[in-house]
């Protein structure tokens, strides 16, 4: 089963871009989402993410990501609606719970921001190989290799740990632990003791990776050790300009009243 961080190979326009352009574009979309307070602009950003996913041939993953983020967003939305108390009161409930116009508006903005800012990063990781990512961090952004390697390794380990956790859950369910219950509180209480086997296997995996990297000369690597070369062409320039325009539009979108 594939996770959201697994690389999906392809030869699309976005796949052929310099990894640095992809990183820049995804960060600018995220920053644009955080800079704008316009509902319409944020909705357009989500739409843009889906268009980019379709361009990269990963629309299915984009839709799946949107679906999962939407589920999480419901929780954030409810919290925001309940805790923002300024503005015109729309509904009063027992225990001094009030729902205000500002509360709903802020909740919508935060949810749209969350979705709009998270999607580009996950989609960028889906079309960028981890080696390219660490190479570009070292070669172009001059980040020391050990930090770039640690960053990409951490990303690489997320799906591995997720699959390890699901294997541990399977093993425990087979022993009679009721992790297949639908009661979320009971499930959380039962999952906590499973952190021990996850921690043990994770530490073993990390230690194994560290030793494997060290015995292959990890500390001999410098910025010049990169075998691949990454060139910037006109497509990249176009994407970089587009990203800057997005950011400027985000700032100006705050002045538009709808």
């Amino acid at each position: 089963m594939r996770s959201f961080f697994d690389y999906i190979p392809g030869n699309s326009f976005l796949h052929r871009l310099n990894p640095l352009s992809r990183i820049f574009l995804s960060f600018m979309i995220s920053i644009a989402c955080f800079s704008s307070k316009s509902h319409l602009f944020l909705l357009l950003m989500i739409l843009l993410n889906l268009v980019l996913a379709a361009l990269a041939g990963i629309l299915n993953r984009g839709m799946e990501l949107l679906k999962n983020l939407s589920k999480f967003s419901v929780f954030i939305f409810v919290l925001q609606v309940l805790f923002v108390r300024r503005g015109e009161v729309l509904l009063e409930m027992p225990f001094n719970i009030i729902i205000t116009e500002d509360g709903i508006s802020t909740a919508i903005i935060i949810v749209l921001r969350l979705i709009g800012a998270t999607m580009p990063l996950a989609l960028m990781l889906s079309i960028t190989q981890m080696n390219d990512l660490s190479n570009i961090l070292v070669v172009k952004l001059k980040i020391p290799y050990k930090y770039a390697f640690a960053f990409t390794t951490a990303l690489r380990f997320i799906p591995i740990f997720a699959s390890e956790m699901s294997a541990i859950i399977e093993a425990q369910v087979s022993r009679g632990v009721q992790l297949d219950t639908k009661n979320i509180f009971k499930k959380t209480r039962l999952i906590l003791p499973l952190c021990l086997p996850l921690l043990i296997t994770s530490m073993k995996k990390i230690e194994g990776s560290a030793i494997s990297a060290e015995i292959r000369g990890f500390y001999l690597r410098t910025g010049e050790s990169c075998y691949r070369k990454y060139f910037i062409n006109w497509n990249d320039v176009g994407v970089l300009l587009f990203a800057v325009i997005l950011f400027i539009s985000a700032v100006f979108s705050n002045n538009i009243k709808l």
């Binding site: 390890e164 294997a167 541990i168 399977e170 093993a171 425990q172 369910v173 087979s174 022993r175 009679g176 632990v177 009721q178 992790l179 297949d180 219950t181 003791p193 499973l194 021990l196 086997p197 043990i200 296997t201 073993k204």
Partner: peptide, 24 residues
């Protein structure tokens, strides 16, 4: 039938014991 219910009748030994062991 839930797996946790079937666990009363079926014992499942996994290839990797570390996924099963969770106590000190």
């Amino acid at each position: 039938t839930k797996s946790s219910v079937l666990a009363r009748q079926i014992g499942f030994l996994f290839q990797n014991p570390d996924r099963q062991i969770c106590r000190n």
